[in-house]
Design a protein around this nucleic acid. Sequence first.
DNA 1: TTCAATTCATATTGACATACTAGGAAATGT
DNA 2: ACATTTCCTAGTATGTCAATATGAATTGAA
Lengths: 144, 144
Amino acid sequence: MKISTKGRYALRMMIDIGINDKGGPVRIKDIAKRQKISDKYLEQIISMLNKAGFVRSIRGPQGGYRLTMKPSEYTAGMILRLTEGSLAPVSCLDGEVNDCPRQSTCATLKLWTRLNDAINGVVDDVTLEDLINWQTQAADIYYI
Amino acid sequence: MKISTKGRYALRMMIDIGINDKGGPVRIKDIAKRQKISDKYLEQIISMLNKAGFVRSIRGPQGGYRLTMKPSEYTAGMILRLTEGSLAPVSCLDGEVNDCPRQSTCATLKLWTRLNDAINGVVDDVTLEDLINWQTQAADIYYI
DNA sequence: TTCAATTCATATTGACATACTAGGAAATGT
DNA sequence: ACATTTCCTAGTATGTCAATATGAATTGAA
């Protein structure tokens, strides 16, 4: 019942890009250095974000990545669902339809559905803008 | 971000025992047959519930397991936390204290804390009694 | 036009967890 | 005594996670 590094790193990268884009693209190497994460691993993760259109890449020298939308338009749920695959606590709630043969008599399904709703309620309520604000506020307090 | 079979089976066993205790202990073999799960695997899981005092065992012929408390006194969270280890979405929220060196500057921690609270809010609100009621209601509808 | 800096793509790996299966020991009611 | 139950430990196949590794493709700048 854990969010994997993929999801956590993806959020941190999006936050990092949001904060460090000063009118030009942000390099993986710099993100890796700031976040203290292997740049090769980050490459793989950002490739997902790129293919999903959450960032766009610029190749060659002075290249890097930029956000494609305003931070307020991304939710944490969008980013986590993309990288984690699904946030559902049980696989029968993964897709659109539940084809579990036990579903009509499954008491625990009601519990899992409530849990699923609670999880979605949180992650779809928090935007990248929120995360960036929390990040910059925390940094301010820390470095004063 | 999935509940494992251990947690799911533990809940189903507790529900099964709650429903099928007719004044005497319920055998693993019968639970396994009803739930269509390997009895050997259920043995391992119920051993955790036994050691935690959630059920008590009676050995020998006509032996089996009985609940030690009223169904209303168990929450789903108690059973899941025991079998899953922890329901926290990130490991830095696992124990009592958070000793992550990034915590003071970690924006995502706020998200994980909200998520953790939401998860706990659901699982600690649903009791075994609720689950048993949902189960018996579902069975009624199904078999009429 | 060459070169260095960057992203892009794919394969491999080690460690670990999951979801069991297997075999037999211990206890106990009849 | 014996059959029935739980109890205990070990083994195992499979898959996932979290990287690491290697090199190709692209492109701005000298």
